[in-house]
Nucleic acid binder design. Structure first.
Length: 494
RNA sequence: GCACUCGUAGCUCAGUUGGUUAGAGCGUCGGAUUGUGGCUCCGAAGGUCGGUGGUUCGAGUCCACCCGAGUGUACCA
């Protein structure tokens, strides 16, 4: 098969290019989150994008092939490697590999891209950025409580006002207890429990009625596609629905509601005890004012969590480009994963952590108007009026740069009009003009493009526009730097 | 994966019951303006009508299959 056609310049599905404004926003967000994590005593570590697939634990069950959800490739020695799909599994590998060197508990944070090979959707990409903090080797729920409070601090550091977000906390042991209570504990009901958990997880999407359908016979979606339910009977459904609705703004009340529901289950009771302990720690620190809340409907990650689970949710709605209301929902989450490091080692290694979805949060912050969308000003552009004088223009650029002013000489091949347009597109604050007239007089002209654009609104005739040369000054060449500095001073950030 | 909807210029879209050479607006580039962003005017570039096959004297239009996209749903470590 030959490839005589030109390749199409196109982005792979589910991936995005980032523009200067996006990069600036993400960098600022990362800086703010980093400050919070460091304030709490976490330290950075970086692991590669690729791990051996078995270290990630993503081989298909009973097969010698990686899970389809991860991007995988085979090394020249036939070993399977995969792009990381989260930052937790690589951390577990890192900790297990460096166990003796690391202080325990080990408090670490990591930021970077992760990859998921699944169908992209609005706000869902195959490459996105996460920013995690984890505590490894801390068995008590004090570590979990701390991470919840730190998550709340992150939200506020990012400019999300108190009351417009909530960190919701639940415990997998309580969920397990409920399963036991309705008689679907035990190995032979594992599949059914999964269906029930998934149904609970859909509460914010479908509401209580939708969950009720999914717990029973099943649910038909808008396109007519049918989702098979868990097949619970009315009594079982009532217990689950009651459990999901047991949450209250008052943590004591929530816990009192939960206790009788799992009274018959030792696991469930242990889970409620843990929630009570977290609630007490949260209250002692003053975070029980709506920032951190016990909520039985949080399910979160169906596989490796073993205890407390948490989710950061945005509570406000925004309007997207098409005028539709959008709820951002979950922008981060985490929980306790006591089994993940011990997978590599004989001994148990408790761990808990939290992950911020930077990419999704960035979209939310834009909608909230918390960040300006612009990419800022461009450099000062020195126009090339006379190609033979390039050295002279380059010398001006050097003077500006030596003074700490971002500047460049126009390097294209077009005429003056195109050069000014170029500077305009770069959002340059001003351009430097020196033709033969100015050169002979030992002068330069400086055109303030921002002020010029403002003045242009009052000019309608082409002659006037050209003759008046709005916002343009002439200064001795020796005063170039000082004059540019004066103009830049008018525009903060230029 | 399943279901529904949709593919015409870079973007948004027209295109008559199937009928000559497939159009418009916006954007891009050039000119009017030897050396000035905007406005205005003039001009140009840009399309295998998603692909393949079929029906027909004739297909952007009708049919089949394929590919791609969007939305919902499933999965989501």
């Amino acid at each position: 098969m030959t490839r005589d056609e030109k390749p199409k310049a196109r982005l792979p599905r589910g991936f995005v290019d980032r523009h200067p404004a996006d990069i600036k926003l993400a960098d600022e967000m990362i800086g703010k989150i980093k400050q919070v994590y460091e304030l709490y005593g976490f330290e950075p570590v970086e692991t590669p994008l690729i791990e051996y697939t078995d270290a990630l634990g993503k081989f298909l069950p009973d097969q010698d092939r990686p899970n389809e959800g991860v991007f995988s490739l085979q090394d020249d020695d036939e070993q399977w490697m995969s792009l990381r799909y989260d930052l937790t599994a690589p951390l577990a590998r890192y900790v297990a590999e460096n166990f003796d060197k690391l202080p325990k508990p080990y408090r670490s944070y990591r930021v970077g891209y992760v990859f998921r090979n699944e169908k992209p959707g609005p706000g869902r990409f195959r490459q996105f950025m996460q920013f995690d903090a984890d505590t490894v080797g801390a068995p008590t729920v004090a570590a979990d409580a701390e991470i919840c409070m730190m998550a709340a601090d992150c939200m506020e550091a990012l400019g999300i006002p108190r009351g417009q977000y909530v960190i919701r906390v639940n415990n997998r042991k309580v969920l397990d207890g409920i399963m036991e209570a309705i008689g679907i504990g035990g190995d032979d009901n594992a599949g059914r429990r999964l269906t029930v958990l998934r149904a609970i997880d859909k509460l914010d999407k479908f509401g209580p009625e939708g969950v009720r359908l999914l717990l029973g016979a099943g649910r038909m979606d808008e396109s007519g596609d049918f989702t098979k339910g868990a097949g619970l009977d009315e009594a079982q459904i009532a217990v689950v629905i009651g459990f999901v609705g047991a949450g209250s703004v008052d943590a004591d009340l929530t816990i009192a509601n939960l206790r009788p529901l799992v009274a018959a289950s030792a696991t469930g009771t242990a889970g409620v005890d843990e929630l009570a302990e977290i609630a007490a720690l949260v209250r002692a620190a003053g975070y029980d004012d709506g920032r951190v809340r016990i909520d039985p409907s949080v399910v979160r990650g169906l596989e490796y969590y073993t205890g407390p689970v948490y989710e950061a949710e945005l509570l406000f709605e925004a309007v997207n480009d098409d005028g539709q209301k959008v709820r951002f929902g979950s922008v981060g989450g985490g929980g306790r994963y006591d089994g993940l490091v011990s997978r590599f080692r004989g001994e148990p290694v408790p761990a808990t952590g939290f992950s911020v979805g930077v990419s999704r949060l960035a979209a939310a912050l834009k909608a909230l108007g918390k960040v300006e969308a612009g990419a800022g000003y461009g450099p000062v552009v020195v126009l090339v009026m006379d190609k033979a004088e390039a050295a002279r223009y380059q010398a001006m650029v050097a003077r500006l740069r030596a003074a700490g002013i971002r500047a460049e000489m126009y390097l294209g091949g077009s005429g003056m009009k195109a050069q000014v347009k170029y500077a305009d597109k770069r959002n340059s604050p001003c351009v430097i003009i020196q033709g033969s007239n100015e050169r002979d007089a030992g002068e330069v002209q400086i055109k303030d493009l921002i002020e010029g654009a403002r003045l242009a609104k009052g000019i309608s005739s082409n002659e006037e526009w050209r003759e008046s040369r709005p916002a343009q000054i002439t200064v001795p060449e020796a005063d170039l730097v000082a004059a540019v500095r004066d103009i830049l001073a008018r525009y903060p950030g230029a």
